[in-house]
């Protein structure tokens, strides 16, 4: 048990990088969005003129400034922490257990932060500026708990994907990495290509994608995450260290 705690410690040994840096990045992105909001508000006479902006900012990707780096956590876990863990005599099972715990902790921490910020954003009508940064499609537009569920699942999925892909690399090298990434990308690529060629299919695809309910999307995210986690756990059992 304490050996699993050592794995958690290895992952979080650089406290600044793990716990502080993402918030600094988030703060910078937030400051930029705020600045845009201030300029927008100064340039209009009536806040109702900002309805369009308020609507459009549903797709504001500024929240990825924190989601993105967290996805890298899965890569770092396998490519940097895993070799040192094995070198220090930690078993793969212990490493997987500790890493799972760390993924959970990190996902929970940032989910909490984003959920709280989203609630504030909603309560203050976009921080009084009618802007959106956290009440966006990527992390959930509905109630606070939907944001919590969506962010948590999304982060976990991202970290598991990162870990799985890195483990493929450790096990089969560059070639394995490219084959797996290409085959993963092939499915959406084929769908889009066919949609372009077949008349009317594009609309069908859009309708199909648009008609998936929130819970459906959550199912898809959870499924991908679970598949990645399963692949990761299977592969790590014999992954060599590079």
């Amino acid at each position: 048990m304490f050996r699993t705690a050592s794995v958690i410690r290895l992952h979080t040994q650089q406290r600044f990088n793990t716990f502080v840096l993402p918030f600094i990045i988030l703060a910078i992105a937030f400051a930029v969005v705020l600045a845009i909001g201030v300029i927008a508000n100064l340039s209009v006479d009536d806040p109702s003129q900002l309805d369009g902006m308020h609507e459009g900012m549903r797709w504001n990707g500024a929240v990825w400034s924190v989601l993105g780096p967290l996805m890298g956590f899965g890569f770092t876990a396998m490519l940097q922490i895993f070799p040192l863990s094995l070198g220090l005599g930690i078993t793969r099972r212990e490493f997987a257990a500790g890493t799972l715990a760390v993924f959970g902790i990190i996902a929970a921490l940032f989910t909490t932060a984003i959920t709280v910020l989203k609630s504030i954003e909603q309560a203050t009508d976009g921080f009084g500026l009618r802007i959106r940064m956290f009440d966006v499609v990527y992390v959930g537009m509905g109630d606070w708990w939907q944001t919590a569920v969506q962010t948590f699942l999304l982060l976990l999925m991202a970290m598991f994907l990162g870990a799985a892909v890195s483990t493929v690399y450790l096990r089969w090298g560059q070639r394995g990495l490219w084959i797996s990434l290409t085959s993963l990308a092939l499915v959406p690529f084929l769908v889009v290509s066919i949609a372009f060629v077949v008349p009317g299919m594009m609309e069908q695809v859009f309708i199909a994608v648009g008609s998936v309910p929130w819970i459906g999307w959550m199912g898809i995210v959870a499924l991908i995450g679970a598949l990645a986690a399963g692949a990761w756990v299977l592969l790590i059992r014999r992954a060599p260290v590079r």
């Binding site: 050996r3 040192l84 005599g89």
Partner: peptide, 25 residues
């Protein structure tokens, strides 16, 4: 305890980070 010539350490790690964990193991 296995000390290997080719041991890689995570970016940003300092010797004290390695020692802190090794101590617990």
């Amino acid at each position: 305890c296995f000390i290997q010539e080719s041991q890689k350490y995570p970016d940003g790690f300092r010797a004290q980070d390695v020692l802190a964990v090794a101590r617990t193991l």
